[in-house]
Design a protein around this nucleic acid. Structure first.
Lengths: 282, 282
DNA sequence: AACGGTTACGAGAAACGTAAGCATT
DNA sequence: AATGCTTACGTTTCTCGTAACCGTT
């Protein structure tokens, strides 16, 4: 079925005659007549009562017109999402590195509201997300850039987050004697931490930022992690001390080179509050 | 836009490849490829990422597929109302003679429930309704057959309703001495009443059955009207007496000869509780 | 090399406009 | 006689299948 016939039918119903509708649609009366004839044949019902001039809709015809308007409405919605524009359009599969998802998602989804894009989200390790972006299982990923970027992916910097030490103020003086809470060394930020810390005396490994901060708040030791995460769980009993010089976490938006999203990736980055100007490499 | 392309697109999305979809749709890979290419051109967006084999949907492609399913769903609904069947299908404009509407409508609408037909209803005088059916403003009418049927209309008997006198029991003995409440003589049943009654002593004309019965119940006089209407407003104080021999109201379903409904008029009559057998002429 | 998709090309189908014909008003 | 729609017919445009071709895996 072609929606053009339905549009014609609806127009005929509005105008009340074939001639009038043909004029308004810029087509011949003959063409319109044949179109309606073909539609009737396709549907297997008589849409018009042709025993009168101008011919009138039959009862079924009226019902069909009502349904046709529904079909055309949905078609309009379909065309709407194809209308060109600067905004992001489509249904995207995004991966977030777990340690960033908690903080970034609310703002991201807020920014995405009202837009013409929808999202399917999953969280995981940076390495896994990168792999899925590479194979096309994900359209884009937000990851911690620790090692270099795999060939075939391109990245855009979303955030730089300096690392700081967090420690209970009672034991801040001899921090090095305390237990060090180490976020999983295999992960993105874990690798950065491991590279900067050498070998602390006493180490506990944990895979949960919130749990680590709970322990630090309880005065059980100290940790090293990105500022925003520390701030997130900061209490009056905890102080921040400068981390290793230059140590920072780079949160990057990665997409597959040459993918459909690669060209509209700037629009996606904008949903993270990143402006066009901020995309210079370090 | 042709819905066939949308169906193809959805199938490709389900199956995951052009080849598989082409097989299931019984068409050539070439044809399917060209169809998708044409669809992309029409929509002005890239639905597929062709840099991989098998090619994958783009984010916009996924959104378009979702919308396409909506369009196809509405198309299915449209086709549904065209599917042949014994039941009545369409959107009908019906006219009811006012004096019958009150009693018939509830049962009619009840019977119509769940069917594939919808109705726009209006009430009025039999003559007006017949005229509108004749000119096509109405698809069918339920009227009181008083005079003959206009040429061009065909009728089917729905009900025979004998006339009875209704009178307050206190004055039933000398009924003829009382005021006669006469339903409007210009109308269908009014003509029947006028023809049967001659010239009663004291006459009050009213256009409202319920009001007439209220007056009768109040002992203000007597009236002559169809049994069901009397029964509708009957109280313990009122008695029914046999009306003039053979006087009855015939409620008929009228449609225009040769109209689309003319062939399915039996199905419509069924909604009034009239069985196929009961259509013999008197 | 196998698989998946595209392109070129010719055959058949479909849609349109012109113009003549027919029915309703 | 005028209006409104249909039909016949030639032209143009679409759509498809065959088959050769190209890129990915």
């Amino acid at each position: 079925m072609q929606t053009r016939s339905l549009r014609t039918l609806v127009k005929v119903a509005q105008v009340g005659s074939f001639v009038g509708a043909a004029e308004q649609l810029g087509m011949t009366l003959s063409a319109l007549s044949m179109q309606m004839k073909a539609l009737e044949a396709e549907l297997g019902v008589a849409l018009f009562d042709r025993s009168v001039r101008p011919s009138r809709l039959t009862p079924v015809g009226r019902s069909v017109v009502a349904e046709a308007e529904g079909v055309l409405g949905r078609e309009e919605r379909l065309l709407e999402i194809c209308r060109p524009g600067d905004d992001l359009v489509g249904s995207f599969k995004l991966g977030f590195v777990s340690t960033a998802a908690v903080r970034l998602l609310p703002g991201f989804l807020q920014a995405a509201r009202g837009g013409r894009a929808t999202f399917a989200l999953e969280t995981g390790l940076s390495a896994v997300i990168q792999e899925k972006v590479l194979t096309g299982q994900l359209d884009a990923g937000v990851v911690t850039n620790a090692d270099g970027l795999p060939e075939g992916l391109s990245a855009r910097l979303l955030r730089r987050e300096p690392f700081v030490f967090a420690v209970h103020r009672d034991v801040a003086d001899d921090m090095e004697r305390q237990t060090f809470f180490h976020f999983m060394p295999g992960t993105g930020i874990g690798k950065l931490i491991a590279g900067a810390m050498g070998s602390p005396r006493d180490v506990v490994v944990l895979d949960n930022l919130e749990a680590i901060m709970e322990c630090v708040c309880a005065g059980l030791g100290y940790t090293l992690m990105p500022v925003p995460d520390v701030e997130r769980y900061l209490t009056d009993d905890v102080v921040m001390l400068p981390g290793p010089e230059g140590l920072q976490r780079r949160l990057e938006l990665v997409v597959r080179k040459g993918s459909a999203l690669a060209r509209r990736e700037k629009a996606l980055a904008r949903l993270f509050g990143v402006l066009a100007a901020e995309n210079a490499a370090p």
